[in-house]
Amino acid sequence: MLIRQKDDVRSSDITAEAVYLSRRDLIKAAGIGVTGAVISGSIGSRAIAAENGPVGKIMASVTKSPLSTAESPNTWTDITGYNNYYEFGTGKDDPSRFAVDFAPQPWRVKVSGECNKPGNYNYEDLVSLHALEERIYRLRCVEAWSMVIPWVGIPLASLVNRFEPNSNARYVSFKTLHAPSRMPGQRRRILDWPYVEGLTMAEAMHPLSIIAVGLYGRELPNQNGAPMRLVVPWKYGFKSIKAIAEISFTRKRPRSSWEQAAPSEYGFYANVNPQVDHPRWSQARERPIGAGLFAGKKPTLMFNGYAEQVASLYTGLDLRKNY
């Protein structure tokens, strides 16, 4: 079963890349054959549309991680063109369109709360001290679709340790940047901006939790949460907060944005769990993105397939109540 799914993903990957390459060649050929002024119209816009292969600065010295899955990643086009990132609009292709002008640098992160090293940190100071790792993770969206994504990032634990949380710190909470002028989706009050997410300290210190700063070996695209975002692969995607501008250590459990918006539908833990349905749809199966029209769904795995590594975090917890 699993082997067949791998094949499905792989074959569609090859097709997508081949189509993408042949289109590029066509456009190049057209560009050579026809003079600039003539092609400014239709071919010009086609060139932009087809130019959606990997872009962005290539990151130096990224090491592979044993925590990566062996499954084939989704294409760049799928990962960067199909996003839930309401700060840039609620449509799946809104973030890729409206985050183009979001300039993530310079970036500062405010660290506060129960720790010995609060303060305002520059992005470079936070990230450059750590070795970058490629982590190929499964992503399971609460909307019952899934992808495989080759993130580049640093362990969240090593970042957290630098702020030296004290013994009162039981949770770590994150906030997305609040800047309606740069994030047009924040001009409508769909969620109570800024977006808030949180983890228990144990979850934050877990080796699978990372702060992602890159994708496919390149700097993280704006629509995927540049310049830095959380990735917790055993939880539904909405937990993995994007464009982090604040980190805070707290005694009290933070109330995450989706929990505030619809408490009966989205909980604090939001662990991927095929046995606990969303009130409006089943979570038992998921649609793998990129598998095509006739591929069907596949069963969702407990903790998104990371049960072996993370189940011990939740011993004694009623996951039906603490969804």
């Binding site: 189509v19 549309a49 199909y82 993105i289 095509g292 029209l293």
Partner: peptide, 18 residues
Amino acid sequence: GAFNITDHGLGANPIEKL
């Protein structure tokens, strides 16, 4: 779009789009 004749097809999640 479903048969990928148009430029972008139906996007990353064609079934949802349809």
